[in-house]
């Protein structure tokens, strides 16, 4: 499978770390699902990190680091290029990684990415040595521009963040997969159920990034495990080369030679 800036996780679920009932439950979800990559939002939780003695958010960062998995910091909640770039630099300092999930929000009701700002921020950060994971739409022209800007991964949305609607535009996502056959693609946002995640993997996507569907489930750890299984199943289904759907029945047992007089 395609690697993410040289990193090839066995587990293709990327899990967000926000809004769990407790850090202990988050740790349990990470453990039970076996995820190898978690995302963490710097913007909200850091607060006035710089001002505090030793950093006011340090306790939470320590908990995230103790999960023992790779951290993909994100710029969630940033609305401008400048905010996103500043947040990315803070993230590099806090987590010691060049990875950054780049989010530049353009519209508050749908939390839809501002793709113009996204491309600009991606270029600035890539030039600065960041390895950018852009949260984008399924627009292939925008995808191409993001690659031009230095991105080596694309993360189109399934549906608006937190909506749990699944894949709103299957056609668009399939087109994107066909258009960028060598680029690792991640469905990021909008996933509600493991079946949504499996569907995206069956389209040939390389990973699924989600947060709310697990964090706000009644039993987050169990739901994380369910997602990991669904994603593994979808991934194997893609590798196994699924059959094409057809209009008419095709008998699975040959009819020819069957004793019809009995």
């Amino acid at each position: 499978m395609r690697a993410f800036y040289g990193f090839e996780p066995k587990n293709r679920l990327f899990l967000g770390t926000a809004r769990y009932p407790s850090p202990a439950i988050l740790a349990d979800a990470v453990k039970r699902s076996g995820v190898e990559v978690v995302t963490a939002s710097l913007r909200r939780e850091a607060g006035q990190d710089k001002a505090g003695e030793g950093g006011a958010g340090q306790a939470f960062w320590a908990l995230i680091r103790e999960l023992g998995v790779r951290v993909l910091p994100n710029t969630a909640g940033c609305h401008t290029v400048k905010e996103a770039v500043t947040t990315a630099h803070m993230a590099r300092e806090v987590f010691g990684t060049d990875w950054i999930k780049l989010e530049v929000i353009g519209e508050d009701d749908t939390l839809q990415p501002d793709v113009v700002g996204l491309i600009e921020a991606a270029r600035i950060l890539s030039d600065d040595g960041f390895q950018v994971f852009p949260y984008t739409t399924e627009d292939i022209v925008v995808g191409g521009r993001l690659l031009d800007a230095g991105c080596e991964v694309l993360m189109p949305w399934g549906a608006p963040i937190g909506s749990g609607r699944g894949l709103n535009n299957v056609y668009g996502l399939r087109t994107m997969r066909q258009h960028f056959p060598d680029i690792p693609l991640v469905v990021d946002a909008g996933i509600g159920l493991p079946s949504h995640a499996a569907q995206a993997m069956e389209l040939g996507y390389d990973a699924i990034l989600l947060n709310t569907a697990v964090a706000k489930a009644g039993n987050p750890a169990l739901m994380a495990q369910a997602f990991a299984k669904a994603i593994e199943a979808g991934c194997e289904a893609w590798q196994a080369q699924p059959i094409e759907a057809r209009d008419m029945a095709a008998p699975s047992t040959p009819v020819m030679g069957k004793a019809f007089l009995s």
Binding site: G47, Q48, D49, A51, A56, G57, A59, F60
Partner: peptide, 11 residues
């Protein structure tokens, strides 16, 4: 509810 020990100011 913000994961931070800061007690100084509201944002």
């Amino acid at each position: 509810m913000i994961e931070s020990g800061d007690r100084s100011r509201i944002s």
